[in-house]
Computed example of a mutant assay.
Amino acid sequence: MSIMAQETAAPAMRGSEIRRHELAAFLRSRRERIAPEQVGLERGVRRRTPGLRREEVAQLSAVGVTWYTWLEQARNIQVSVQVVDALARTLMLDASERAHLFQLAGATDPTPAASCSGVTEAQRELLRQLEPVPACIQNSRYDILAYNRTYARLLGDLDAVPPEDRNCMLLVYTDSDWRAAIVHLEDTQRLMAARLRASMAGHLGEPAWKMLLKRLETESPEFRENWERYEVVGSRTKIKEFLNPYVGHLTLEHTDLWLNPGPGARMVTYTPKNEETRRRLEKLYEIARAS
Rank of each mutant, 00 (worst) to 15 (best):
Y151A: 14
R266I: 07
L185F: 03
F242A: 07
P263H: 08
E276N: 13
G64Q: 04
V183M: 05
D94C: 09
A74D: 05
D177Y: 02
R236N: 05
Y68V: 05
A12V: 12
N139H: 06
Y270W: 07
H249R: 13
L155F: 09
V79P: 00
L145W: 00
N148G: 06
S16W: 07
L284H: 00
E217D: 14
P245T: 12
N139G: 10
P36K: 05
L71K: 01
R48P: 06
V247G: 00
A198H: 06
Q73V: 13
E97W: 06
V81F: 01
S176R: 09
H184A: 14
S235F: 13
N260I: 06
R20W: 04
E206C: 14
R54L: 11
G15L: 08
E231I: 07
N139Y: 03
M192F: 08
D256K: 10
N226V: 14
E42L: 15
P221R: 12
C168T: 12
T66E: 12
E225Y: 09
R279P: 02
G118S: 04
R266E: 09
P272Q: 08
M13G: 08
T271C: 07
W227R: 05
P207Y: 05
D175L: 13
A24W: 05
E231C: 12
L154C: 02
S199I: 01
Y68W: 04
R149V: 07
R98W: 03
R197E: 09
V268T: 13
L185N: 04
A181T: 13
G64H: 07
V84T: 15
A107P: 02
T251A: 08
T174C: 15
T8P: 00
Y285W: 11
S96V: 13
R33V: 15
H249V: 06
A181V: 06
Y173T: 01
R289P: 01
W67F: 11
K283L: 15
L23I: 04
R20L: 14
Y173K: 03
V133K: 01
Y173Q: 01
S96H: 11
H184M: 10
L93K: 01
G106E: 14
G264W: 02
E186W: 03
W70V: 03
T188A: 13
S140Q: 14
V133N: 07
N167W: 00
I3T: 13
Q123S: 09
W67P: 04
